[in-house]
Design a protein around this nucleic acid. Structure first.
Lengths: 242, 242
DNA sequence: ACACCGTTGTCAACGGTGTTGTCATTTCTT
DNA sequence: AAGAAATGACAACACCGTTGACAACGGTGT
């Protein structure tokens, strides 16, 4: 079934051939968009610059994507695919906690590599195949925890939204304009380290620890807190039904 | 010394008078900005429209704020003041968990009233007086939990960043353009409810619960999970030091 | 009262953004 | 070879944040 000749299937084959090529160009555009966003930050990812990067007029991109939002969703979908790629397979009999830990770790790694895309898409739903796989993966981990469906879903969403929210928080910090970032960073040493002890005693006595805590430690603590809450809810559920 | 003229008290009085009037105009501008952001959404809050709202040329706003970022920080500062206002005083002997629950609740209420500002400022630090008060308030609650300083700070930041991340997540959902919001919302019924059961059994069997869970329930679950984690860490600390 | 000077308001402009429409050119199918 | 579909190039629209120049106003010092 190569490409040409044969009567009836010709039009569909031709059309699918074009579709394929269109998809290839879409993928190339998403590639360039990732490169651009990583290099120039969230404000540098514009349709004109993306066209410039691809040596194509910006208007031509609207033949590939209905609007910029569709491009962003394509980038979000690929981000999820990267996380799936990063974490590898779920081995038979792996504790559900470890599955969720590995997903959380992969999400964090990808977020660190692509903060701009994280900021732009962390509250969106793509509905694409990678997202579908991810939903099934995480949700079945929570189902394995032994919770009733409504509690499983509640903790699933708590896990996902918390992870996304914290990743977006960190990504937003990491993708501020350098001067603004500097300004925000130094507030702890410029302002909070010099507060009068009388009015702000606790802040002053914790100032060293405040400047030392890392975003990753915060993320890990939050993930573990939610896993522990899920375990507790599962234990209560089993006690109640026995 | 003052500036040029010799009469010392006069110039400072005049200057403080001008400063006061300038601050009044700043406050009025922030008022209008809140009104505008609430009415027109995150994309509708522009300097030109804000000028239009105040019957002033947009360029005049740059006499009040160095740039748009400074306006946003002023709005963030006022947002924190609203939360402090909403939660009232900390009564003597109130359990630290309840203090943190009331702060979390106030934050959520203000976020739902002003989603646009939440999205625009959730990862920023103002360094202003309201923020200073809020830091001291939350941090002293965690100090009351009996944790060592480094653990207290770690859980303080986990609490704050998780709450901000989840509020920003919800706010971002609530301030999408209506058509995009509709598109994202219906993905669960358009896509996920129709997935083939063979490849996505768990998603299909939890579809009803997935469409029913609310952002507020997720938020409350996350906050309680972190409070529980803090309690556990405190208990371990007390056991270790006894 | 007058001149002065800092503050305020107005206007135009620059370079940037997402997006649309038009028209010519290329590419592929029949 | 002819016709249709896809692609590319260019200009344009309506916005955006921000800056500079310039006119009008108001209180101050002489």
């Amino acid at each position: 079934m190569a490409k040409k000749t044969v009567a009836s299937t010709e039009s569909t084959a031709a059309r699918s051939g074009r579709r394929e090529r269109r998809d290839v160009r879409r993928e190339a555009a998403v590639d360039a968009a990732f490169f651009l966003a990583e290099r120039e930050g969230v404000a540098g990812l514009s349709m004109r610059r993306l066209g410039q990067e691809l040596d194509v007029d910006a208007a031509g991109l609207y033949r590939l994507f209905r609007d910029k939002d569709e491009l962003l969703l394509a980038m979000a979908e690929r981000t999820i695919a990267m996380i799936l790629d990063e974490m590898g397979e779920v081995t038979e009999g792996e504790p559900w906690q470890d599955t969720l830990r590995r997903i959380a770790e992969g999400t964090w790694q990808v977020q660190t590599r692509h903060p701009a895309i994280t900021v732009l898409t962390f509250a969106r739903t793509t509905g694409g195949p990678a997202e579908q796989r991810m939903v099934e993966l995480i949700l079945s981990a929570f189902a394995r925890s032994g919770l009733a469906p409504d509690q499983a879903v509640l903790h699933y969403r708590t896990y996902v939204d918390t992870a996304l929210g914290l990743c977006a928080h960190s990504a937003a910090l990491n993708s501020l304009d350098p001067d603004v970032r500097e300004k925000d960073d130094t507030i702890w040493t410029r302002i909070y380290a010099r507060l009068p002890e009388a009015a702000h005693p606790v802040t002053r006595s914790h100032i060293d620890e405040l400047t030392r805590v890392t975003q990753k430690a915060i993320y890990d603590t939050a993930v573990e807190a939610i896993l522990a809450a899920t375990e507790r809810a599962g234990a209560e559920h089993r006690n109640a039904s026995s």
